[in-house]
């Protein structure tokens, strides 16, 4: 009789550390995430069900504790719960028409932190990341080199770089190069 195989889930970027004194790179802890689409008349009920007000202005986010709602488009949000709570169930309890897809394991994230964080991200991202244009709490889907990312500024010197897990070695590598350059 064959031995039972045991599936082990490997976190992308597990154990990786990188960056420079100017910009430290840390793989983000596992989190639950949903890709949420909804019409304007469903926003209030979804906000109440998720416990975080879905932002309706471009490039803005809203946070409630460890739960974050990031505006991606006029009817599209990325909702992240760093405590791993069940966002699908929360959205479903809204009782209003919406589309939610669990992307907890499609995405992973790199935290870029330090005085050179802005320079490190800008090494591959064309957006203006000055504090006046991209303040704390700002977020945007954009690109980093060849990979699409969702960029979220969580502090003046800290960015959360969300990317698809298959792109994460590329994203981590490019950010490492940028972090090196940020130190000079």
């Amino acid at each position: 009789m064959a031995d039972q195989a045991t599936a082990i889930r490997n976190a992308p970027l597990a154990g990786l550390r990188g960056g420079s004194p100017a910009a430290i790179l840390t793989p983000a802890a596992p989190a639950s995430r949903i890709s949420l689409r909804a019409a304007p008349d469903a926003v209030a009920a979804l906000s109440a069900a998720l416990g975080v007000t879905l932002p309706t202005r471009p490039k803005t986010s809203a946070s409630s504790g460890k739960r974050h709602a990031l505006w991606l488009g006029p009817d599209e949000w990325l909702v992240i719960d760093e405590d791993g709570k069940d966002l699908m169930a929360a959205a479903a309890s809204s009782g209003v028409m919406h589309s939610a897809v669990d992307i907890s394991h499609r995405n992973t994230a790199v935290i870029v932190s330090g005085p050179g964080a802005e320079v490190a991200v800008n090494s591959g991202c064309p957006q203006d990341l000055s504090l006046a244009i991209f303040p704390v709490g700002a977020c945007s889907r954009t690109i980093l080199g060849k990979a699409e990312i969702v960029l979220f500024r969580t502090a003046e010197d800290t960015f959360r770089v969300e990317c698809w897990r298959s792109f994460s070695p590329f994203v981590f590598g490019l950010l490492s190069e940028g972090a090196e350059d940020a130190g000079h």
């Binding site: 471009p58 945007s140 690109i143």
Partner: peptide, 18 residues
């Protein structure tokens, strides 16, 4: 780099995003 004004994002962004 060419900048394109997105009427939904309400700001100019790099051509690389379009």
């Amino acid at each position: 780099m060419l900048l394109i004004y997105c009427p939904y994002c309400e700001e100019e962004r790099s051509e690389l995003e379009f």
